[in-house]
């Protein structure tokens, strides 16, 4: 298709503006994080790494970071395992209650997180799981499993059933068919689902605020609590660190397996 030069230029400008709109908050946070004043303002007057140093000296942040990392890792693994099993059931078998499972899997997409949060408080309190690792992990599993089911199901649907049948006919037990054929073929979907689950858990605030208090506070809840009393560039610096971690994870995986293909 032939496009006139001005039209091409206008199109590029539009796209450029869109990117600016999307990235502006991140750019402003990035700039503010180097400000030396003890409150959040734009533009900064003088620049330093002082806020970053303070973030890394803040024991609450550091311990919350390790907690979030651990919780994220457990949630990522758990969501992928459960998500893969659900995906297998949904794509490979017809069973009674399939529709119900399908609905349950997409329910967390529809129900607002704040409603989920209230519900989880009531349920987890009954089991004495409020402000515990199992409590927060269960809550995060609930909201991340829908994503892993999606990515893994997509991968599963792209696997040629004849390939699995060929393995079966040539002597592989059903378990070996899964282990040696299906699993390697859906690995991109599994890794993508795991990463997404990890990132969601690592980032999740609304539900966590209901469930955690001191013992199991995650990094986002720690940031939220900090913001209640002070607004200084430390928060901006911490945000930048979090963004960089997320970007790093995505880039590494993109390089390793081509994440874009899997999602």
């Amino acid at each position: 298709m032939e496009t006139s030069l001005p039209a091409k230029f206008a199109w590029r400008l539009l796209i450029g503006l869109l990117y600016v709109f999307l990235l502006a908050p991140i750019i402003i946070v990035f700039v503010v994080s180097f400000d030396t004043r003890q409150y959040l303002a734009f533009p900064p007057e003088s620049l330093s790494f002082g806020s970053y140093v303070k973030v890394f000296q803040n024991a609450d942040f550091i311990s919350a970071f390790w907690r979030s990392l651990l919780i994220g890792a457990i949630v990522g693994l758990g969501a992928v395992t459960v998500g893969t099993l659900i995906s297998l059931a949904l794509t490979r078998y017809r069973f009674r209650g399939e529709g119900a499972v399908n609905f349950l899997v997409i329910a967390p997409f529809i129900v607002p997180n704040i409603v989920l949060g209230v519900g989880l408080v009531l349920v987890l309190a009954g089991f004495g799981l409020l402000d515990t690792y199992p409590g927060i992990v269960l809550a995060h599993l609930g909201i991340t499993i829908p994503y892993t089911v999606r990515t893994v199901s997509m991968s599963l649907m792209s696997v040629d059933r004849r390939v699995e049948e060929a393995a079966l006919v040539h002597g592989a037990s059903p378990f070996n068919v899964f282990w040696r054929i299906t699993l390697p073929l859906i690995r991109p979907g599994i890794i993508a689902g795991g990463v997404i689950a990890f990132l969601i858990s690592f980032d999740e605030t609304t539900i966590s605020l209901f469930i955690v208090s001191v013992r199991s506070s995650t990094l986002p809840t720690e940031i939220y609590r900090y913001l209640e009393y002070s607004t200084d560039p430390q928060i901006a610096a911490l945000s930048v660190v979090l963004i960089l971690i997320s970007v790093a994870v995505v880039i590494v995986l993109e390089r390793l397996i081509g994440l874009r293909k899997a999602v």
Partner: peptide, 19 residues
Amino acid sequence: PVHKRNMGMVFQSYALFPH
């Protein structure tokens, strides 16, 4: 069961293991 029948099968789409 299928995997104990000791048969070989050539599929129309070949169904080779792509990995």
